[in-house]
Design a protein around this nucleic acid. Structure first.
Length: 717
DNA sequence: AACACCGCGTTTTTT
DNA sequence: ACGCGGTGTT
């Protein structure tokens, strides 16, 4: 391949980054500036020009999707398989590493991955055993705490408990959790990173081996790395200035889950010879959209500094719509989408972006009413569904009878007469004999410690698992899955479930068999049997959210999930103080800037046309609220904005008397007013005219009041 | 084991 | 408002 193919298609900044000498590099890549392109071409450059072997390359991303895209594009550009390269997610790669060095990492070769649901259940079980009060110490919070510590690289033993009794409690559970995981060979997501880091740190020979191997380290979305991820990268690089990191401090929106933008500064300090390249030319959006986004983000302090520009035209102005309530907002958005789609555009090129998932409902209802197909992102992933997890639990029991997490899950699912009393007895036996639940169950039966009925039921369960194990032995993976699905009784169980839910679950279980059939195992070099490999895959790649993807439908998602995507037409909705920025972000210092970045991310998704909407009143948690327009709207220069004056024909919040047209009424719906006694409020409706008009107002202080215009002395605000 | 009731919380998500 | 999860009832 010619050198030309690698760099000819790049702009100056991109080319500078791609063809830089082999030292460390920080690429500040703005939204839509071609960052993946730079990473992909850099890999090609390293191989074709610097003479790197595929095996010398480590390229890390956050999501499976990004990793798959990277691999695909590298293969396309180089025209060769990427087999020898380590391209993958932090979790995928550290998992591979731990499988290879399980023994050195003091893990059994058969260690299992605990997903967050498994983790939660395990923590709860432990807390019950320890007699910790769940009300005072919510398991969710404990889980959060444990993961937070692990993400910071801290073991229970490294943490000073201090005097706070709550903290001491958290720490105690953490320690117990660590011990249990170690004993049962369980590894949670954060542990994959932490364990890998510790193994390298404490094993100089191994570290040297991997350092020698990975001569080039590339990192995508660097601003999203957390402490342990950076520590791991740093260890592998160790002062050799061989890291090529790409990120955008303005798109750091995951601080709340441990991401550290400051890693960018640490990187600069740890790699004094690094170069910085800014990718500021944007290939996605119009001038108006970029101008607005630039101005918005300029309100943040301490940025690395970056300003997007385009060779493209100014395009249409951003439309701002002030709805009077959330219904009106949804109506407006759906109307615009309908018109847009009727004028020949694809629905899939339109997206509605919101701050919180709860906001999707209104839009869904409206879209449904308008018979416009849509797809909501997020929600449960395939491998996270209860029925799938149940099916997998049977498979896990087949692979390993001592998998307590799975035992707990399916011992009475479907119900087979093994009640709480029986399971409690098994737990107690397991604890005192420090054995697995499976072993405990066997010894309880042998010692005839149960009433005949319970004993029979438990025996039937043990026989079922053994039977499934025997029957599926030496069968292909998908056969095993099929056998489990058919004979576990799960299908009959879900058939009894009323409504469409049960049917959907059965379909999902059948889908599990086809997922197993499609699962390609050869690419897995580890010495892991096919079943265990499939189970790891299920934990690490939760799969798509929705099974049925329509070809052409409007996209609904949170601003967070929109990162990395682009759409011709974008609606960012609910731009109100308290909603976006959210209440918590306003009160907790430092959170506001992240919120602003989120808005920036949302706006820069739009290619051709951007709509921003907010409502004057909104039902929130069952109460009517009257939020102010988001401060972010004020931070966008007016020259980029065009207010939509026309109000769509609306469904009103309360029945408005039809005899009063809106134009005649002195007080429009949504008009803010001030009353001497009641304070500020919002007009809901007006009946009659002139001084005798009755005006219904919702006051912030006292709620809805009906006043006579002549006496009320209302001041319009 | 299925069903009803009650109380609580309620940004954002990947692996 | 609403849904979820936990508890108590039949």
């Amino acid at each position: 391949m010619e050198l030309n193919t690698i760099i000819a298609s790049l702009n100056d900044a991109q080319r500078e980054a791609v063809s830089a000498p082999k030292n460390s590099m920080l690429v500040l890549a703005g939204a839509g500036s071609g960052k993946t392109r730079v990473l992909v071409h850099r890999i090609a450059w390293l191989i074709k020009v610097e003479g790197a072997f595929p095996g010398n390359i480590l390229s890390v991303t956050f999501t499976n999707k990004a990793a798959a895209e990277m691999r695909g594009r590298v293969e396309l550009l180089l025209g060769m398989p990427t087999g020898g390269m380590w391209i993958g997610t932090f979790h995928g790669l550290t998992h591979r590493f731990l499988r290879r060095h399980a023994a050195e990492a003091k893990l059994p070769g058969t260690f299992q991955i605990l997903d967050s649901d498994d983790q939660y259940r395990l923590i709860r079980r432990l807390m019950k055993n320890m007699g910790v009060d769940e009300a005072r110490c919510p398991p969710r919070q404990v889980q959060w705490f444990i993961n937070e510590q692990k993400d910071e690289g801290l073991r229970a033993a490294n943490i000073d408990a201090g005097m706070d009794p709550f903290r001491r409690q958290l720490l105690k559970v953490y320690a117990e959790y660590e011990a249990t995981c170690q004993r049962s060979g369980l590894v949670d997501f954060a542990e994959l990173l932490l364990r890998s880091f510790e193994l390298l740190r404490d094993n100089p020979a191994l570290l040297e081996e991997y350092q020698a191997r990975f001569r080039y380290i590339l990192v995508d979305e660097f601003q999203d790395t957390n402490a342990i991820q950076y520590a791991w990268l740093r260890l592998l690089s160790q002062g050799r200035e061989n890291m090529f990191v790409v990120g955008d401090d303005d798109q750091s929106i995951y601080g709340w889950r441990g991401a550290r933008v400051e890693n960018i500064h640490s990187f600069q300090k740890d790699n004094p010879a690094h170069k910085v390249v800014r990718l500021e030319q944007n290939y996605r959006s119009t001038g108006n959209i970029l101008g607005a986004a630039n101005s918005l983000i300029a309100n943040n302090q301490g940025r690395m500094g970056k300003e997007l520009w385009t060779e493209d035209s100014e395009g249409e102005k951003i439309s701002l719509y002030n709805a009077f309530n959330e219904q009106d907002e949804a109506h407006f958005v759906v109307e615009r989408i309908r018109k847009w789609s009727e004028s020949g555009n694809s629905r899939k090129d339109a997206a509605i972006l919101y701050r919180s998932n709860a906001q999707s409902r209104l839009f869904e209802e409206r879209l449904m009413a308008a018979a416009i197909p849509y797809r909501v992102y997020g929600g449960q992933r395939f491998f996270d569904r209860a029925e799938i997890k149940n099916g997998l639990a049977y498979l896990r029991m087949i692979a390993n009878r001592n998998d307590d997490t799975s035992f707990e899950r399916i011992v009475n699912t479907p119900t087979r007469g093994i009640g709480n009393r029986t399971v409690d007895l098994i737990r107690a036996e397991a604890q005192s004999a420090s054995s697995s639940l499976w072993e405990a169950a066997i010894s309880i039966i042998n010692r005839k410690q149960l009433p005949a009925r319970a004993s029979n039921a438990l025996n039937a369960f043990l026989a079922l698992i053994n039977g499934l194990g025997g029957e599926s032995k030496d069968k292909a993976l998908f056969e095993k899955v099929r056998i489990v699905v058919e004979k576990s009784g799960l299908i009959e169980h879900y058939k009894k479930e009323k409504g469409e839910k049960g049917e959907a679950r059965i379909e999902n279980l059948q889908e599990l068999a086809s997922a197993a059939k499609q699962f390609s195992w050869e690419e897995n070099e580890e010495e892991l049997d096919e079943l265990s490999s499939f189970l790891a895959h299920a934990a690490l790649e939760a799969g798509e959210g929705q099974a049925d993807e329509y070809d052409d439908c409007v996209q609904l998602m949170t601003l967070h999930s929109a990162k990395g995507l682009e759409f011709k037409l974008v609606f960012v909705v609910g731009l109100e103080e308290g909603l976006f920025p959210g209440e918590r972000s306003i009160t907790e210092p430092g959170r506001l800037e992240e919120e602003r970045r989120l808005c920036y991310v949302g706006m820069t998704r739009a290619m051709e046309k951007l709509y921003l909407t907010y409502a004057e009143s909104r039902r929130l948690y069952g109460r009517e609220t009257y939020p102010k327009a988001s401060r972010f709207l004020r931070e966008i220069p007016v020259e980029h904005i065009e207010e939509v004056r026309m109000r769509a024909t609306v469904s009103r919040p309360v029945s408005v008397t039809s005899s009063v047209s809106q134009r005649e009424a002195e007080y429009q719906l949504g008009q803010r007013v001030k009353h001497l006694k009641f304070g500020e409020g919002v007009v809901l409706q007006q009946e009659g005219e002139g001084d005798s008009a009755q005006i219904q107002i919702n006051f912030h202080s006292v709620g809805i009041k009906t006043l006579v215009a002549g006496y009320a002395k209302l001041e319009k605000l």
